[in-house]
């Protein structure tokens, strides 16, 4: 699993695959105030990305990967 769900925080790591999107969506549906930690994330599948874009959770940690961070910042902070 590349997503670890803590009490109110989802920690995404490495390459987040398409299979994770369902779980991420369900979790975010249950926890509207959830936060997301992308610090160790290198890439996330577009399905996950659109879940994050739709759910607009608070991003606690932006990815360390600068390129990914740029992409995500522009997509998730609109």
């Amino acid at each position: 699993m590349t997503i670890e769900f803590k009490r109110n925080l989802a920690v995404l790591r490495d390459m987040v695959t398409v299979e994770e999107a369902e779980g991420l969506l369900e979790w975010l549906q249950k926890k509207p105030t959830a936060k997301v930690d992308l610090g160790a994330c290198v890439h996330l599948h577009a399905a996950n990305l659109q879940v994050l874009m739709a759910a607009k959770p608070v991003i606690q940690v932006w990815p360390a990967d600068a390129a990914l961070r740029l992409w995500l910042e522009s997509a998730l902070t609109i």
Binding site: A21, L25, A46, A47, Q50, A55
Partner: peptide
Amino acid sequence: LAELDAYCCLL
């Protein structure tokens, strides 16, 4: 969010 389909690409 409740109606979102994670696997229908809307991007």
